[in-house]
């Protein structure tokens, strides 16, 4: 059984479309939305292992230009 996680992303750029496209282009990301509030995007990932979640965040989302911080929440059910 796989792992589902939600990643909250705060950026520091007004190029929301570009950041969203780059997040969505990452393998394992099934969905990403621009959201109102104190984070700017929420991405949903569906992968095989918790380690794969870490890879998407560390070597994927956090390397996108304009991404400032991320918070990861792993679904429990």
């Amino acid at each position: 059984m796989g792992v589902t996680a939600y990643i909250l992303v705060k950026s520091n750029t007004s190029e929301a479309d570009r950041v969203k496209d780059e997040i969505e282009a990452l393998d394992g990301v099934t969905d990403a939305n621009i959201v109102a509030g104190d984070v700017d995007f929420i991405a949903k990932v569906a992968v095989e292992t918790p380690g794969a979640v870490k890879d998407i965040v560390a070597s994927g989302i956090q390397t996108i230009s304009g991404v400032e911080t991320t918070q990861t929440y792993i679904a429990m059910e």
Binding site: S11, S14, A16, I34, D38
Partner: peptide, 14 residues
């Protein structure tokens, strides 16, 4: 809003 980069984002999407 609390940070200037958000101005355009809200103008466009909200």
């Amino acid at each position: 809003i609390d940070e200037d980069y958000r101005e355009e984002i809200y103008q466009q999407y909200a």
